[in-house]
Design a protein around this nucleic acid. Structure first.
Length: 898
RNA sequence: GGACGCGUAGCUCAGCGGGAGAGCACCUCGUUGACAUCGAGGGGGUCACAGGUUCGAUCCCUGUCGCGUCCA
């Protein structure tokens, strides 16, 4: 007897600890075992588990548990990302709250020390949360992007790419976050739609012969304007191209140039060009050799390139002042309200500035070429395939990758500046000094670049840096040799560009052309029940840990797995999770039934040798299920696997097998007539349950492991006594499927279903136990039905199943699989209801006959459709006509009886 | 503006060339030998719209409308 219900709260922590202690999360040592590896998308070390992580990591765990059970050397390598800005911000905020010195007062070294202290104390939050979800990561191999090994990998990659001239310094526009005073990546920029204005400014022509009107949402940038552009074909301005306007306030002449960028349809058709503060204008500036005047400092305050009265002003104050100045000068030609997209730093929340600075860049175009080819030729495949379009789109239009960040938390760039601005790049300071000595012929002071690398730079190396590179190399016996390339990457589409693509580039470049993973599974994005992206500000976040508390990890995992349909959003609701919690309970209760009814493994049980049709049927259905689940998981069809298991366990095993098995099993204190059949059924039920536990384990590891343990001592010992987690995955041959048993049980089931439907439709009382009469059936069907009398009697609540030659008056007819039944319940019959039921049935059949007959009358159909389709329609027609004739006869009898 | 995707039962979604399914919700009934976190039955859909291809279209193609995401 099991406990009344499964209690996740007590079981989950106990089992997780036991699993981990057993060493079962580590790949098996067997050198013959096929390696199967996954690297985790490293969550930010500051992170806490949100529902997206829960989905992503559940799917990874499902896959790794599946492959582990299939006997592979399965490695799920976990770790966290140092997450430059996010982490620095968290610690800065904590310092401020505690009233400590600011980062700048404290100095770089002390501040970084503080971050490490913070990491030691709080950095493990998310990994502990993953454990609550059941994630079977090999924690002994856990890595951190800033640990010593990964830092060595970063330095080696940087130096190598520099030597190959694939890393270089350049002055370009970057996304500048004035709050953190650093460049940030495109990924860290969030476009937000905000209310704004178009200010229409008149720029007087230099010769005083007129003016040209430009519109802008950013008036302050006019302080850095170096041109006005018009479209080369815009007839209105043909005479002005090549002339100049005098920039108000600044009092600087700037040329009127012709450039395709100016859109004649927009506003006046003329556009002001500020090359140092707008990405489009920057390109216009490059094309036209315009000066680039930077008007901001690192805080986005106006610098000395602007007139004195503007210097030091914040950009928004400057905006106001510029507009006022235009108004005062009588040059403000209009203000128009608008809503437009404005870039914000996703961490700081402030408006990001395009800012002209010196930064380090990776020549991504060169690295992208083999990474594109790898997808084109199938070395790596996307699942679903459609995502490769997104990948190609970006990779074929790739821009130089800005990798330097003006932060303190991260990998310090291994570059040293010497006198005269000479740069020495080396993995160590000693190396740089040696280069400098050679270059200058004497010791000169070197200053290391203050900047750190983009966090994504180290993430891009994750699939090989975590496996021991560069210390280990692919040709030696090592994790790297064994587990690279990894097999499947499971991640979200939001980081295809920023992470997936870059791992492809770096992996191929540094691992002798070997791709970092053979398959990329892109999981859906989790949204709330309204389809909104979950965010704290919307207040619609669902905390996975709270859901685990309320329903157990298995229920959450099953829900996420079942809803993980490809290329689609997941709208999560508590009702759904509740439903799958109930599913676990159902399995628990079914197990309890088995236990109470003596179902136990039999020594040497052979599923192929069972005799009873019911048992042969369930063995076949179990086989189908095992095959379907295996195929689904093999192809990342997680939702299909979950769906298949749900249907089999609930709708077949519980609803039908267990119910139909009851007569064979007898009651605990009342043995059935056939002890051989009883024993066989007990053994079969236990066997099916063991298979089911294995198949369900990857999705619902806790409850299955617990049931596995609770049933460990029932009957013969299992082939292995360890955890279910490392049991052998079922591999059942199709020969276990018996079409004869399928047909027999199918007939019984359908008879019960139809009979019940008829009873309910006519309101036959539960207490009524009429006989079930067989009017017409072939000999085989008759034998099956008569033999199944106890089953049908119990489940259909009939007294007996008997063959008769003619239906008594008032008997209700129904037809299953060509068998004609009658239920004599004259005393309960509501004639009108029955007439309605029969007429409706006849109507449905008549419509079907008309459609099918019409089809078969179409010569083209008969000639062109496949033979089996034509045949199927012929059968359908014949069956429908036969059934209709019988029901019409019954209808006639009903009329006669009244 | 460009690219991609999506419009199937009240809701969330499967299906994707041969007369449409599930879960939840809803209605009726039920203390039947594990399970009320349950069981039995039921209602409910011109598969967005319009053309086309085909013997046959929810499924393939084109267009329209609506929605979403990413990139400008």
């Amino acid at each position: 007897m099991l406990e009344k219900t499964f209690d996740p709260k007590s079981v989950e922590p106990r089992l997780y600890a036991a699993w981990e202690a057993s060493g079962g999360f580590k790949p098996i040592d067997d050198p013959n075992a096929e390696p199967f590896s996954i690297v985790i998308p490293p969550p930010n070390v500051t992170g806490s588990l949100h529902i997206g992580h829960a989905l992503n990591n559940t799917l990874q765990d499902v896959l790794i548990r599946f492959e582990r059970m299939r006997g592979k050397a399965a490695l799920w390598l976990p770790g966290t990302d140092h997450a430059g800005i996010a982490t620095q911000m968290v610690v800065e905020r904590q310092l401020a709250e505690a009233g400590n010195q600011s980062r700048r007062d404290m100095g770089r070294e002390a501040f970084v020390e503080k971050i490490w202290e913070w990491k030691a104390k709080s950095g493990g939050t998310i990994t502990n949360q993953l454990k609550r979800l059941g994630a079977s990561c090999d924690w002994s191999r856990e890595r951190f992007t800033l640990d010593e090994g990964l830092s060595a990998a970063v330095r080696k990659v940087f130096v190598t790419l520099y030597k190959q001239k694939l890393i270089y310094r350049d002055k370009r526009l970057v996304n500048w976050d004035p709050h953190f005073q650093t460049a940030i990546s495109d990924l860290e920029v969030e476009q937000r739609e905000v209310d704004g204005h178009y200010w229409h400014f008149a720029y007087p022509l230099e010769d005083g012969s007129g003016e040209i009107v430009v519109a802008t949402t950013r008036p302050e940038t006019m302080l850095g304007d170096t041109a006005v552009a018009v479209h080369p074909k815009d007839e209105r301005y043909q005479g002005l191209i090549g002339r100049a306007v005098r920039l108000p306030i600044v009092n600087r002449p700037v040329p009127i140039i012709a450039d395709d960028y100016a859109d004649p349809e927009k506003g006046s058709g003329a556009v002001k060009i500020t090359p140092a503060h707008d990405f489009n204008d920057f390109l216009v500036g490059k094309r036209n050799n315009l000066p680039m005047i930077n008007i901001f400092d690192d805080f986005a305050h106006i610098n000395d390139n602007a007139p004195p009265e503007y210097r030091g002003l914040d950009r928004f104050a400057a905006r106001k002042k510029v507009v006022e100045a235009f108004e005062a000068l009588g040059l403000l030609r209009g203000i128009e309200k608008t809503r437009h997209m404005v870039p914000h730093g996703d961490r700081s929340g402030v408006v990001v500035e395009p800012y002209l600075t010196d930064q380090w860049y990776v020549n991504a175009e060169v690295l992208a070429k083999p990474a594109i080819a790898a997808i084109e030729n199938g070395d790596t495949v996307f699942v679903p395939k459609a995502w490769e379009k997104t990948y190609f789109e970006w990779m074929r239009n790739i821009q130089p990758w800005c990798i330097s960040r003006q932060l303190w938390w991260g990998h310090r760039i291994p570059a040293w500046f010497g006198p005269g601005g000479k740069i020495f790049v080396a993995e160590t300071e000693a190396g740089a000094k040696a280069q400098a000595l050679e270059h200058y012929g004497r010791d000169e002071p070197l200053r290391q670049d203050e900047d750190v690398l983009d966090t994504w730079f180290s993430s891009a190396l994750w699939p090989f840096s975590t496996l021991g590179w560069p210390e280990k190399t692919p040709d030696k016996a090592s994790d790297l040799a064994r587990f690279y390339p990894t097999h499947t990457l499971i991640t979200g589409f939001d980081i295809i560009f920023f992470w997936v693509a870059r791992m492809m580039m770096q992996g191929i470049h540094f691992m002798d052309g070997q791709v970092p993973f053979k398959r990329i599974f892109i999981n859906a994005l989790v949204r709330d029940a309204e389809g909104k992206k979950m965010s704290k500000s919307k207040g619609n976040v669902m905390d996975p840990l709270e859901l685990v508390d309320d329903y157990g990890a298995d229920a959450l995992r099953f829900t996420l797995t079942a809803m993980s349909g490809q290329a689609r959003d997941i709208k999560l609701s508590r009702e759904r999770i509740e439903g799958y919690r109930n599913f676990g309970t159902k399995l628990w209760n079914a197990t309890n039934f088995c236990v109470v009814n003596g179902c136990a493994r039999a020594e040497g049980f052979d599923p192929a040798a069972v005799k009873a049709p019911l048992n042969r049927w369930i063995v076949g259905e179990t086989t189908r299920t095992a095959q379907a689940v295996t195929a689904a998981l093999d192809g990342c069809g997680f939702d299909q696997a979950a769906e298949t298991l749900y249907r089999f366990i609930w709708r077949q095993y519980c609803d039908w097998y267990v119910e139909l098995a009851k007569p064979l099993l007898g009651k605990p204190d009342e043995p059935p007539a056939d002890l051989v059949a009883q024993a066989e059924t007990q053994a079969t039920a236990a066997w099916v349950l063991d298979v089911v536990l294995k198949l369900l384990h990857p999705v619902m590891p806790f409850i299955t492991e617990e049931i596995w343990a609770q049933t460990a001592d029932l009957g013969a010992a299992r082939d292995h006594k360890a955890f279910l987690m490392v049991a052998r995955w079922p591999d059942l041959p199709s020969s276990l499927i018996d079409p004869v048993a399928d047909a027999e049980i199918g007939l019984i089931v359908e008879t019960i279903v139809e009979g019940r439907s008829v009873r309910e439709a006519l309101n036959v009382p539960h207490s009524a136990k009429p006989p079930l009469l067989i009017l017409e059936a072939d000999a085989g069907q008759r034998a099956v039905l008569e033999q199944a009398t106890p089953l049908i009697a119990k489940m259909l609540r009939v007294a007996e199943v008997r063959s008769v030659s003619e239906a008594p008056a008032g008997a209700i007819p129904f037809i299953v699989d060509g068998v004609s039944f009658a239920l004599p319940v004259a005393e309960f019959i509501d004639v009108a209801a029955e007439r309605g039921r029969l007429s409706k049935e006849v109507g449905v059949l008549a419509a079907d006959i008309a459609r099918t007959a019409g089809k078969l009358a179409n010569a083209d159909f008969v000639a062109r459709a496949p033979e089996e389709v034509v045949e199927e329609n012929r059968e359908r027609l014949a069956d429908a006509e036969a059934a209709k004739a019988k029901l019409e006869a019954a209808l006639a009898r009903l009329a006669a009886a009244v």
